[in-house]
C-alpha cells in the first residue's frame, strides 16, 4: 500500500490503517474469482521479483524507488500478472481516495451537499409544479399523472 498510494503534498495524511480496514471489509463481498485471486496477487507481488528481472529478492525488502519500478514492470507485463496486480492497485486506490481526509483534501463535499439538496427538493416538491419543475410541469414525455403513486405525489 505504501508504494501504491501517494504521500506528498495534500496526501500527507496518516490513513493507512483505515485504508487497510476498508480493503479488508471489501474482500469478503467481492466476486468469488476476484476474492480467490486476491491472495495470489499478494503472493505475486511479494515473490514475483525474479520473473520480472529484479533478482532473488522479496518485495518488502526493496527500497521505495526499486519497488515502484518493479510494480510498473508488473503493470506492463502479460496477463494474468497484470490483472492480478491491477486488482490490488484498484482496491488500494478506491479505499485510499474515499477516506474522508482525502476527500476533504481534494475539496469534495458530496455529503454536506446531499443534506442541502434533500431539503431543497423537499421544498420544491411542496410547491406548485410549474414553479418547482418549470421544464416538466405536469407532463414529461408522457402524462405522469396517470401512474398512480404510493407516495401521493403525482401531479
Amino acid at each position: 500500500m505504501s508504494v501504491l498510494r501517494p504521500y506528498e503534498g495534500i496526501y500527507d495524511v496518516d490513513v493507512d490503517a483505515r485504508v487497510l480496514a476498508t480493503m479488508l471489509r471489501f474482500v469478503p463481498h467481492m466476486a468469488a474469482p476476484v476474492r480467490l485471486s486476491f491472495p495470489l496477487g499478494l503472493l505475486l507481488v511479494e515473490f514475483g521479483a525474479p520473473f520480472f528481472g529484479f533478482g532473488m529478492t522479496r518485495f518488502r525488502s526493496m527500497n521505495r524507488a526499486r519497488a515502484i519500478s518493479y510494480l510498473e514492470r508488473i503493470g506492463r507485463g502479460a496477463e494474468p500478472f497484470r490483472m492480478l496486480f491491477d486488482g490490488l492497485r484498484v482496491l488500494v486506490l478506491v479505499a485510499f481516495y474515499q477516506q474522508p481526509e482525502i476527500l476533504a483534501a481534494l475539496g469534495v463535499d458530496w455529503a454536506p451537499r446531499a443534506e442541502e439538496l434533500i431539503a431543497r427538493r423537499a421544498k420544491l416538491m411542496n410547491m406548485e409544479p410549474s414553479l418547482a419543475n418549470p421544464r416538466n410541469a405536469g407532463v414529461a414525455r408522457a402524462d405522469a399523472s396517470r401512474a398512480d403513486d404510493p407516495t401521493g405525489t403525482s401531479s
Partner: peptide, 18 residues
C-alpha cells in the same frame, strides 16, 4: 467519485496522486 476515478486512472503512487 474520486475512488472510482482513481481506480480507472492510469498509474499509482505520486504520479497518480498528481
Amino acid at each position: 467519485q474520486p475512488g472510482l476515478l482513481a481506480a480507472t486512472t492510469p498509474g499509482f503512487g505520486e504520479e497518480h496522486g498528481r
